[in-house]
């Protein structure tokens, strides 16, 4: 059993087992479910993730606020020309696809939240193709991601209303960075270094949804945080250490969240949500505006 990242890393190292194994055993003990049942459930979740990651690239969806319709397809078609390359370009398109499905009240898998639902699926699916991995290996990476997420849920928060975007997309980026590092054969230390780096890269980011809808800037933040996960994993795999350990980064993120004023935590009263254009969109959509009109 473990209570934080340091203990999780130590257990994996001392027993010489992968991080996913420690997380899986904890889950089996906690919920009295068998290994097969846990993995089966994860693969079912992955099915929902995969569908959401590709469906809006194929066909644009009517979103509630009509702010991001067609963006997944735009990026998907542009991948051959993308300076970020085929792998990262595809990740960007897939992250946006999940956001587009989510914003159209379609079915997604929260990871850890719906607002951040594009980050982990985009990284997992595209890495699965790149490295020719089985669904079982992906389920193992999902265990790594959830182990990272559980530490954040326990020590901090993944709610944008409580901690801002850094808590939602930040948690997702940390989870995806760790999962990717695990798929690439990283050590337990590298997995949590990648997660720590990703969370530091987004620290302080506010939650400022335009017109109170999960569309702008949320879809682009799903894309940028999926990219954050990839570069953080690259840095960790290169042997670059996170100077601040993961547990302390999580504590710092939580403190920053508590210091964020109410206006910058999902209330749409600050950030780009307070801009004149956002106010016009809110008025058009019949949402509440800052002046209360």
């Amino acid at each position: 059993m473990y209570e934080n990242a340091a203990e999780l890393i130590r257990q994996a190292e001392e027993r010489d087992v992968p991080v996913w194994r420690v997380v899986l055993e904890n889950e089996m003990e906690l919920t009295e479910r068998s290994e097969a049942l846990v993995l089966e459930e994860l693969q079912r979740y992955y099915g929902v993730m995969r569908a959401a990651a590709v469906s809006a690239i194929k066909e644009p969806r009517d979103t509630v606020g009509m702010m991001i319709k067609g963006d997944a397809q735009r990026m998907g078609r542009y991948v051959p020309q993308a300076f970020s390359g085929e792998y990262l370009g595809t990740i960007l398109a897939r992250a946006i696809s999940c956001s587009e499905v989510n914003a159209s009240m379609g079915k997604i898998c929260a990871c850890p939240t719906a607002g951040a639902c594009g980050i982990l699926p985009a990284v997992l699916l595209t890495t699965q193709e790149r490295l020719s991995l089985s669904d079982r290996e992906i389920a193992q990476a999902m265990l790594v991601a959830s182990g990272i997420g559980a530490v954040i849920v326990k020590q901090a928060t993944v709610s944008g209303a409580e901690g801002g975007c850094q808590a939602e997309c930040g948690a997702a980026a940390a989870m995806a960075a760790g999962a990717l590092t695990s798929l690439r054969g990283g050590t337990p230390e590298q997995i949590f270094d990648a997660a720590a780096i990703a969370l530091k890269n987004i620290m302080g980011l506010i939650c400022d949804p335009v017109a109170g809808m999960v569309e702008a800037p949320c879809a682009k933040r799903n894309a940028s945080q999926a990219a954050n996960a990839v570069i953080s994993s690259d840095l960790a795999m290169a042997g670059i250490r996170s100077v601040i350990p993961f547990d302390e980064v999580v504590d710092a993120m939580y403190q920053v969240g508590r210091q964020l004023p109410y206006q910058l935590r999902e209330t749409s009263l600050g950030g780009v949500a307070a801009s004149p254009t956002a106010q016009r969109i809110a008025k058009r959509a019949g949402a509440r505006t800052i002046s209360g009109e």
Binding site: T31, P112, A161
Partner: peptide, 23 residues
């Protein structure tokens, strides 16, 4: 760790917000 991984991953839900829609 007393948090289940299914408190982190999931729920499978109708969007757009885990806190504002699913919750």
């Amino acid at each position: 760790m007393d948090k289940s991984i299914f408190e982190v991953l999931g729920p499978v839900m109708i969007g757009p917000s885990s806190s504002h829609t699913a919750g």
